[in-house]
Design a protein around this nucleic acid. Structure first.
Length: 567
DNA sequence: CCTTTCACTTAGCAATCACAAT
DNA sequence: ATTGTGATTGCTAAGTGAAAGG
């Protein structure tokens, strides 16, 4: 049965025919317009030339397009990387005519600067228009799902370009090919209007699979993986899944103590596999590490999660900085973000880690008897629906709840409350290692803010003296006019004080947030009901915490949550 | 059992927008 | 009106984990 709180998502006109939710059947009716294709490439104007070895070379249409991809990226660091250049040049040559291939043998002799300049000019020109976007959204951005108009998340086919992997990706610079309708599978209801392919084209396949949520899909040529067009996060389908995810995490709360007791027991198991499983689980639980599926070597950047940790990623310290049994982690995780942490662990964990490292090379797996399938199989036997990633959700949400309780007071002023919320959010982001590159203008904007604070403080000092002056005059010959002046000056002082405080809090918040990304945890790990309840308890308007799209995404939580909600 | 495929969530960066300061 | 900035949105890569395939 669907929770009644979903009603506004499921039906905004009239009543339910039937208030029942058949698990497994995702939808009954799906109609859409199909994906939006990027414009075809047209050959460059004659005044935009490509030079090889100082001489103008008129390229064929296919190789010209690829050359433009490189030219567009010229001021990006990518284009200086050896792997990127090598992959690009190899793929570019595949698109060249045989004459071109004969002539163009060295990327270093290529001059894309006119292509680059044209691209920059185009970007500039687009700034001054960009209105037709709205029409596209209206036409392609929505679909009909179970007779409700729903927003589609990504309705555009990804345009061709050069693959930009993260970190040291072995395939960076490779040509990501243009997708034609002939590559695209459409999924819709058999009784719906079938989306029309672009003129002169046909779809690869029309499918009517109501057990999946995607509207269209195609296979991408770099990794051979499937790309999907799916609904926006504010849709019923995504909202329900989100709610389910947090409900599973809340169930973990009821049995996490016994699971922790069990893996602590397992630290001394006679089975090596069991010990490894226990230690891995300890790390996943304590440090919110990702599961760490195996990856195909040479296909992706070399990154790891818990189960795929290698000996070279950890260092053991019997004691370090007044702590005993410290394990030092240093590895690249998802998106090649570095995880660096020195963690005091239980003695038994420490001894086990040393044992797992014995007689191994640095490049050997730490948990050689364990993988994510084994771990998850074990976890599902402990609790229905439990997998490694649930621990991340659970620990993130429970941390937010605890931190909010610890940090915030109802008597705080609004900006202090907000700072507390952000700090609680930050504690989670640090736990989950959600980092960002410090903004390029960070130091400058920090200095600007400090200057503003100084200026405002001076203003405050001035306001204070004026206030005193007015009071003195009032004492001397207090007429009504002076009386109002005193009031006015008093107000000015208060206003200044308030503003200084607000800016100082803002400065603190920003400084602490320099390298931390709060968005990811807010969007994916924190049960929104915790935040909604906190806002109710603290009398903080919800839009201080969630912007419009976040409020839409969490509509289900906003609707169902009362102030007494506990995760 | 192990590998591959598939569907979906999670992730950081880039582009764009909105709004304030000038 | 212009410009600079932080906030928001868009993009798509990179994970997880179940199911299918061999």
């Amino acid at each position: 049965l669907i929770d009644s709180s979903f009603s506004h998502l499921l039906c905004d006109v009239g009543r339910w025919e039937e208030a029942k939710y058949e698990s497994g059947v995702k939808w009954k009716f799906l109609e859409h317009k199909g994906p939006c294709f990027p414009p075809e490439f047209e050959s460059l104007p004659d005044n935009v030339r490509f030079y090889y070895n100082g001489k103008v070379v008129k390229l064929s249409l296919a190789s010209e397009e690829v050359a433009l991809f490189f030219g567009q990226m010229l001021d990006h660091e990518y284009t200086t990387k050896a792997v990127f250049r090598e992959n690009f040049f190899k793929d570019w040559r595949k698109e060249m005519s045989s004459e071109e291939r004969l002539l163009i043998q060295d990327l270093n002799k290529c001059d894309f600067s006119e292509l680059h300049a044209m691209h920059k000019a185009k970007v500039e020109a687009r700034k001054n228009m960009s209105k037709e976007e709205k029409l596209t959204v209206e036409e392609y951005g929505f679909c009909l799902l179970d007779h409700h108009r729903e927003r589609i998340g990504n309705f555009k086919i990804e345009p061709p370009g050069l693959f930009r992997g993260r970190g040291e990706h072995p395939k960076q610079g490779m040509l990501k090919k243009r997708i034609q309708p002939e590559h695209v599978i459409i999924n819709c209801s058999s009784e719906s209007k079938i989306p029309a392919p672009p003129p002169g084209h046909r779809w690869k396949e029309i499918r009517h699979d109501n057990t999946v949520t995607w509207l269209a899909s195609w296979t991408e040529n770099i990794q051979g993986s499937i790309k999907y067009i799916m609904l926006n996060a504010n849709s019923k389908l995504k909202g329900e899944k989100d709610w389910e995810k947090y409900e599973v995490a809340r169930r973990l709360k009821t049995c996490v103590d016994s699971i922790r007791r069990q893996y602590t027991q397992d630290f001394k198991s006679k089975q090596m596999g069991t010990r490894q499983r226990a230690v891995a689980l300890y790390f996943i639980d304590k440090l919110a590490l990702r599961a760490g599926n195996e990856k195909e070597e040479g296909e992706t950047a070399d990154t790891v999660g818990c189960c795929s940790l290698r000996v070279e990623h950890i260092t053991v310290h019997p004691n370090l900085d007044a702590s005993d049994f410290v394990v030092e982690f240093d590895f690249l995780g998802k998106d090649s973000i570095r995880y660096y942490n020195k963690v005091p662990v239980e003695k038994k964990v420490f001894k086990n880690v040393i044992l797992f490292m014995e007689n191994k090379n640095p490049s050997d797996e730490l948990f050689d008897r364990l993988n994510t399938a084994v771990l998850n199989k074990h976890l599902s036997s402990l609790m229905d629906g439990l997998t490694a990633k649930v621990f991340r959700t659970f620990n993130a949400s429970i941390t937010l709840q605890e931190q909010l309780k610890k940090l915030s007071n109802k008597s705080d002023n609004p900006s202090e409350k907000l700072l507390s919320y952000n700090r609680a959010n930050r504690a989670v982001a640090i736990l989950c290692n959600h980092q960002r590159a410090p903004p390029k203008t960070f130091d400058q904007s920090m200095a600007n803010l400090q200057a503003k604070i100084v200026a405002r403080k001076e203003q405050l000092a001035l306001a204070k003296t004026e206030f005193k002056q007015a009071k003195k005059e009032n004492k001397a010959k207090g007429d009504a006019k002076i009386q109002t002046l005193v009031e006015r000056k008093k107000k000015a002082v208060e206003r200044c004080e308030e503003q200084v405080l607000k800016m100082e809090v803002q400065a603190t918040d920003r400084e602490e947030n320099k390298q931390i990304a709060l968005g990811t945890s807010k969007l994916n790990y924190l049960d929104p009901r915790i935040s909604v309840a906190w806002c109710k308890n603290m009398d903080v308007p919800l839009d201080k915490i969630y912007n419009k799209s976040q409020r839409d995404k969490f509509a289900w939580a906003i609707d169902m949550t009362e102030a007494d909600f506990v995760f």
